[in-house]
Design a binder for these strands. Structure first.
Length: 295
DNA sequence: GAGATTTGACCGCA
DNA sequence: TGCGGTCAAATCTC
């Protein structure tokens, strides 16, 4: 009885909190929609709008569940611990591709990613002498369009809040889908798509001769660095972005840039600046971004 | 049920 | 032979 009463009280409190959170998220979304002026960097508006929409969806689902009148959605399955190799793979399994079977074809348009392209994770590997595993992504359209673009993401050992991202290969899929679907203006879209597909090293603001044999740039300091400052001593969660190094393109591949970003969701930012917006205008955009607090 | 992620196995290269 | 990159079945999420 007492248990049921306290459970009901907790549920009531949770319901109230989630309701309040939903109202806040709705207000945020309204503000963001109102602020989608042409002067605002489109990628930031996209991320925050998406975030607000996601908060709303989560709140709605939580509210449905808390209302518990039978109409709410059932809770999801608990994530099971990974199976052991013996459990999952008791014996050798021949590869499907090796047997000549066709690869399944997929049409995937729903997942929006941070740099305007759709990536699918295909592997993760512990790297020797590295604390963090390296994650491998390929273009979602690898099989549909034969797009061979890949990227590797690895958490920085120096600063775990940063991620080193390396891009390989050209996008031949022409699918800057996220950009297209959220209404980037044509110029921005053209910049992003063209330059990601481009393998022109000379677009970087430093001479290509500084590229070694797949080694880091000679620069001892980050080529561009930005850490958002504290304001008035009050604690605010900030996003820190820096470009660490540039590597020479592996044989047969396009140029790659190692970019660090405090959040994988914001990788588009350093790459965007790196390839197209070096210079004062870049910092104008960054300065606008600084005003966004992620409290 | 479709599609994404996880993760051990496989493979090529140095 | 060891390491890094990729594959693909199992599992998870929606």
């Amino acid at each position: 009885m007492a248990l049921a009463a306290s459970t009901g009280q907790a549920a009531s409190m949770a319901f109230e909190l989630v309701s309040r959170g939903r109202e806040s998220a709705a207000a945020l979304e309204a503000l963001l929609q109102g602020a989608s002026a042409p002067t605002a960097p489109p990628c930031f508006g996209l991320q925050l709008n998406e975030l607000a929409a996601q908060i709303l969806r989560c709140c709605d689902r939580a509210l449905d569940a808390l209302q518990g009148d039978g109409g709410g959605r059932q809770g999801r399955k608990r994530r099971l611990p990974p199976c052991t190799a013996a459990q999952r793979k008791p014996e050798f399994r021949p590869r499907v591709l090796a047997s000549g079977a066709e690869m399944p074809t997929r049409v995937e348009e729903r997942r929006m990613v941070e740099d305007g392209f759709m990536w699918r994770k295909y592997g993760q590997k512990d790297i020797q002498n590295s604390k963090y595993p390296r994650e491998y992504f390929r273009c979602t359209y690898k099989y549909d369009k034969g797009c061979m673009a890949t990227r590797q993401v690895q958490q920085s050992e120096d600063d775990p809040s940063l991620y080193n991202v390396a891009y390989f290969g050209d996008h031949t899929c022409g699918k800057g889908s996220a950009i297209t679907t959220v209404g980037y203006d044509d110029e921005v879209q053209k910049l992003l798509v063209n330059n990601f597909g481009s393998s022109s090293v000379s677009r970087f603001p430093w001479p290509s001769s500084s590229f070694g044999d797949n080694v880091k740039s000679e620069a001892s300091q980050p080529l561009q660095a930005l850490c958002l400052p504290e304001e008035g001593g009050e604690h605010r969660e900030k996003v820190c972005i820096k470009v660490e190094s540039v590597t020479a393109p592996p044989v047969g591949l396009s140029s790659s840039a190692n970019v660090s970003c405090a959040s994988p969701e914001l990788e588009a930012l350093p790459r965007y600046f790196n390839w197209d917006c070096f210079g004062e205008s870049s910092f104008d955009i960054i300065n606008e971004f600084i005003n966004i607090d992620l409290q």
